[in-house]
Design a protein around this nucleic acid. Sequence first.
RNA 1: GGACAGGUGGCAGAGCGGCUGAAUGCGCUGGUCUCGAAAACCAGUAUGGCCUCCGGGUCAUCGUGGGUUCGAAUCCCACCCUGUCCGCCA
Length: 464
Amino acid sequence: MIDLKALRANPELFQKAVQLKGMDVDVARLLKLDEQRRELMARQEAARSEQKKLGKEVGPQLGKLKGQLKSATEEQQKELTAQVQVLESKPAALKQEIHELDEKLKVLEPEWRHLWLCLPQPPDSDVPIGASADDNVELRHWHPSWFDPKRSFADNKGFEPKSHIELVKKLGLADFERGVKIAGSRSYVLTGAVMRLHQAVLQLALQYITEEHGFQPVSVPVIVREQTMEGTAFFPHGKDQAYLVDEQHRGGTHDLWLTGTGEVSLMSLHADEILDVDQLPLKYATCSTCFRREAGAAGKDTAGLYRIHQFDKVEQVVICKADEEESRMWHEKMIGSVESLLQKLEIPYRLLQCCTGDLGPKNADMIDIECWMPSRGEEDAEGNPSGQLGETHSASRLYDYQCRRLNIRYNDSDKRAICHSLNNTVIASPRILIPILELYQNPDGSISIPTVLQPFMQGQKVIA
RNA sequence: GGACAGGUGGCAGAGCGGCUGAAUGCGCUGGUCUCGAAAACCAGUAUGGCCUCCGGGUCAUCGUGGGUUCGAAUCCCACCCUGUCCGCCA
């Protein structure tokens, strides 16, 4: 959410932000509604002020007159009633005026508010301008010595790769058919060692981020109120992507929503709180099940574990002081910690600087990480895939955009300010199982378990 | 799911139609006193919006939303939340 004062002072900046992000928000209309709203409110306040003043003068007199009415003769009653009417006429007119202004505000406010909520965070000046993910810019890449994605899989490992789908099917450790039978498209069942591998990678990530990087582990709700989705700025823009728990339909008082990321609840922990500067930065991590409708992705990545409706994710957030340097520092730190985790897992990856068009409404800056997935990409004449990088991580910097909506503030000596927030994927599984399963496969279809994951799998070294 | 009780400032707690943005106590901040501290005493101490000639002005907020009234923390309705007991249950 944008500071309306900032919008009024510099509308061009926000007009440009809308354009850079390829969004459709009528900034001029918002400004106009904002002006109308303030004008109506000013008139209403003046009327209320008058009403209050008048009430204090007239009220006691009215009380007295009405008291006298009870014991008055018929003649006196007429006289007193007339006096009451005179006294009541002016406040009544004001009441009517206030009511009418109220009605006008009620008409105007929903649209005003919607536009305000839709107004995006301007991209940072150093974010490259671009229309879509195709314009994202590679920052750096890394790979372990034993696998260079510049060469083919066969060149690296001496045999042609199987996809993670083939591998787990052959091992009998995943069942997509039954997943679909139970829950519909993009559903899956993991079994045995692959289920344990899924748990292992999550455990490793949570332990790593909490113990080595000092993030506080928190277990949070994944079914939340609409205001929680709105406060974290996933709504209104991302409403299509969230599953609705339609409680009203069956007589409940309010609906609930399934969260698509642990960020929603982690960020909402301190909604409407005024923190002390000494409490900052707050560093939280959670492991939560994430639900995504994948609306608009029909026909895309339909097979396997890449694009699915339900997965688990270790997510980290930082709530810090309103300081650009500090925000940038945490962004770097979080990205660095994920890089080092991927290096422990020995997965080739690259960092992408997302361009303006790929940022989403709430981000000032976003860095994605893509991991090497041998089964993706074009197939050659023999049907062997080229391999391709696939998105597995995303690190966002939001300045005060999210905390303003959530109303998370802090006291610093005699100043009060809105906090900054950041969030980042530590690991999302099963998607991360794709590079792990495919890169660590052996010619016989067995899968070696990465060394760092073995302690989380009772020392098991191979899935066969 | 059933039956009660209750939601007021940082905390405790009064108020139950106008004098109440709110008594009192605690806490916190500053000051007096003191070699220093404690105690005592004095003063200050909610949040947000709008306007401002930057002195201030004004409105809203006593769980939330409606209503009654010239006027609501106070009366009425709905909802939310918390506590206690019973039932069910991972």
